[in-house]
Amino acid sequence: MKVMPRVDRDRCMGTGLCHVTAPKLFDLDQEGHSVPLVDELDSAEDVEFAREAVDGCPLEAITLVTEPAG
């Protein structure tokens, strides 16, 4: 199973909470919108961090999309 982080730029207000929660997985671009730094979460630990970022985003702008591997 592939797990991919997605950010809805229309919802994101640039709080940067995802970056503080999971600095290896999210950063803010030049305009201050969150961007995922990886296409795919490749460890259980990263999935955990990403879930925390999803739960912590006050704008509900982050989702994790799952796809069958391969």
Partner: peptide, 8 residues
């Protein structure tokens, strides 16, 4: 204003 205060 966001652009002025990003982590980068």
């Amino acid at each position: 204003l966001n652009a002025e205060f990003t982590p980068q």
